[in-house]
């Protein structure tokens, strides 16, 4: 059921939200609804939808050339980083550059553990990410739902003000936010790192966009069955917005994992700090020891890279969708 709902959704929403692009369902004249399922599921399958056109295969050689050279260029900094993390400091600074270390220095990775509290910082990072994702998904989806599908006073002005915040550089919030957290006594705590991030104007907007694209029928049916707005939201509408939730989860995980300035300001003990802060402190201490810096930053990025590789279809679909609105 939810599968067909999803496809329903995409068909409807591209029309409803005045989708910028002609959606296949419109162009093809297909009615929106469960029947559109096979055509609408986007993401990785999307490429196939263009059909398996025969000819012109030859010109794909050029495409492969361009794409593979470009792709290699894109990840070459990371490859370079891997090589550096396995080299000696002298090799890093040698000319011509070292393409592969003479002796692979696995010890650089071991040294990271003695240089920073990697374990506890990983735990903090995971904890703040989980809390922030859960909090944001819950709060933003509720608020986004209300802004999309409910009427209340001052809705327009409130929305306009909230959205304007999305554009403001985060550095501007730093001092006042710090003072609030300090007054709450949340310095050096997961609560303190997470608190401002749970409330997200962007998340609210993203979820509002997704909810606006959902069909009315199921909501109406549930209402006729006597369900209250909470029940309608949690049982009917939220499951329908799964794609939007995924987009929000992915983006929030990225921000939370990589965020540096805020956690650095609110945490002052090494055990309460997340990996991003640990990494920047490491840079202060071992400014000259490139291999250890490279190894540490690889280790800090690894969980998120692995997660991405495992879930890349959803990530791509989620991010791609966020731009279609």
């Amino acid at each position: 059921m939810s599968e067909s709902m999803l496809s329903t959704k995409s068909g409807v929403d591209s029309r409803r939200s005045g989708a910028a692009v002609t959606s296949p369902s419109q162009a093809g004249g297909k009615p929106s609804g469960p029947a559109g399922r096979d055509r609408k599921s986007r993401g990785a399958e999307g490429a196939r939808r263009h059909g398996t056109k025969g000819g012109k295969q030859g010109s794909n050689v050029l495409a492969h050339c361009v794409l593979s050279i470009g792709g290699l260029a894109m990840i070459s900094p990371l490859l370079y980083q891997i090589v550096m993390s396995l080299s000696t400091n002298a090799e890093v600074q040698s000319t011509p550059p070292t393409l592969w270390p003479g002796v692979v220095q696995w010890s650089n990775f071991a040294d990271v553990f003695t240089s920073m509290n990697f374990g506890s910082q990983l735990w903090v990072t995971v904890a703040i990410t989980v809390v922030r994702v859960i909090g944001q998904v819950l709060l933003c989806s509720m608020a986004g739902y209300a802004f999309a599908r409910m009427q209340f006073r001052f809705k327009g002005p409130i929305l306009a003000i909230v959205l304007s915040i999305i554009m403001v550089p985060s550095q501007l919030f730093l001092i006042p936010q710090y003072q609030i957290i300090q007054n709450l006594g949340w310095l050096n705590s997961i609560a303190g790192i997470v608190a401002p991030g749970i409330f997200s104007a962007f998340g609210l907007f993203l979820m509002r966009q997704f909810f606006m694209g959902l069909p009315d029928e199921l909501e109406d049916a549930a209402r006729l069955d006597g369900a209250n707005p909470f029940q309608i939201f949690f049982r009917v509408m939220l499951p329908l917005a799964a794609n939007g939730l995924w987009a929000l989860v992915i983006i929030t995980v990225l921000w939370s994992w990589n965020d540096l300035l805020w956690p650095l300001v609110v945490t002052s003990t090494a055990n309460a700090a997340p990996l991003s802060v640990g990494l920047s402190n490491l840079q202060g201490e071992h400014a000259n020891n490139y291999p250890i810096l490279m190894a540490a930053s690889l280790m800090a990025m690894a969980p998120i890279l692995i997660m991405f590789l495992l879930m890349q279809k959803r990530v791509m679909a989620g991010i791609g969708r966020s731009g279609l609105k």
Binding site: A47, H50, G51, H64, L67, M74, L78, S276, L305, Q312
Partner: peptide
Amino acid sequence: RPGLRFAALYRTLYFIPYITMPAAVGIV
């Protein structure tokens, strides 16, 4: 392009820089 092989791989290659930690890649 319709039927292009390795399309998913290419997308991955190009997307990876977006998910890296700025503080980390800055040093690289």
